[in-house]
């Protein structure tokens, strides 16, 4: 009774429509004629997602607080210590007029290596195999496709599609994403590809893969990589921290060596991000990288106060004030 002729005809019709859509969209690629349909989706669902995100955020925060409790405790300790240091710096700055002027200049040039950003909030995430998120800014805030998205820790991804009030971000961990990148302190360049943040074993700790273009170039575990910067600063601006080399795959006959990267950004719990709306005027090189974890570059010029904020930026900053310091976490 259910499986009548009419039902089958409708089924056939719907399947044909679906297959046609797949074919048209697949062949069209980025300029698919069905793009309008997606724009429609962004217009209709974008505002709904914004509203629902604002409703569910407290719930998510509670859940996050439970799962992150140990890490947050550590972070609170860290921030407390940092606070203490900053307070000391501030006091010394008050005492020393010259120092205060310098600090001000440092703060002025800080701004994440000169990136001009637009803050945004992640409101939803992609389904299935794709590593994409929606953020709550769109074309009405001046966002355009192929802008870089960053967080306080480093590179997040790039904007792929922009709706009126929302935009879609392709995360760096997505398997279709590849980013021109550079090893710190050297000119060695390579390509960082996503491996997907989902799935056991594959993603896990190292959801990124870095391939050096020069097979003979030196690379070792613990080196950090930053973005190289694309032509015309789109889609990726230069100098954004990506991650740390976690392990290096021994070359088995291949021409390039592959390193697996642990990113600075936690892609499973993205919340506040920023879209780079204007790239820096000059390449910040390694200036935006967080301070080295090993205290090799301890700052001990006689002029610096007892506890210095960032061991890397300060000595350079006091020598040449044009260098960008590390922004606070």
């Amino acid at each position: 009774m259910k499986d009548t002729r009419r039902t089958r005809m409708v089924l056939g019709g719907l399947l044909v429509v679906a297959l046609m859509m797949i074919t048209v969209d697949y062949r069209g690629g980025a300029n698919s004629p069905l793009r309008g349909l997606r724009d429609f989706g962004a217009t209709v669902f974008g505002p709904v997602e914004r509203v629902s995100a604002s409703i569910v955020r407290p719930v998510g925060n509670t859940l996050g607080a439970i799962t992150d409790a140990p890490g947050e405790r550590r972070r609170a300790d860290q921030l407390e210590r940092q606070n203490q240091r900053l307070r000391e710096q501030l006091r010394s700055a008050h005492l020393d007029k010259d120092r205060s002027a310098q600090l001000e200049r440092l703060l002025g040039t800080a701004g994440m290596g000169g990136y001009k950003v637009h803050a945004a909030q992640v409101i939803s995430a992609g389904q299935g195999f794709e590593d994409t998120v929606t953020i709550d800014v769109g074309s009405s805030s001046g966002i355009k496709p192929d802008m870089t998205v960053m967080s306080a820790d480093g590179l997040v991804g790039r904007v792929t599609r922009v709706g009126p009030a929302t935009s879609t971000v392709l995360l760096a961990t997505d398997q279709t994403s590849s980013i021109g990148s550079r090893l710190e302190d050297s000119k060695e360049i390579g390509i960082t590809q996503g491996r997907g943040r989902r799935g056991i074993g594959r993603g896990g700790d190292t959801p990124l893969r870095f391939q050096l273009l020069d097979a003979a170039a030196p690379i070792h575990v613990g080196q950090r990589i930053v973005t190289l910067g694309s032509q015309g600063q789109r889609p990726y601006v230069p100098g954004l921290p990506i991650g740390v080399v976690e392990r290096i795959e021994k070359p088995t006959g291949g021409l390039t060596r592959t390193a697996y990267i642990r990113p600075f950004v936690r892609f499973t719990s993205l919340d506040v991000v920023a879209v780079v709306v204007a790239p820096p005027k000059t390449d910040p090189r390694d200036a935006v990288l967080p301070p080295k974890p090993s205290p090799t570059a301890t700052p001990s010029p006689s002029t610096s106060p007892k506890a210095s904020g960032s061991p890397k930026a300060r000595p350079r900053g006091s020598k040449s004030p044009t260098t960008n310091p590390t922004p606070g976490e």
Binding site: M21, I22, R38, G41, Q127, T132, D174
Partner: peptide
């Protein structure tokens, strides 16, 4: 919105 696969 965040969907990024082939439509359909």
């Amino acid at each position: 919105p965040p969907a990024d696969h082939t439509l359909g």
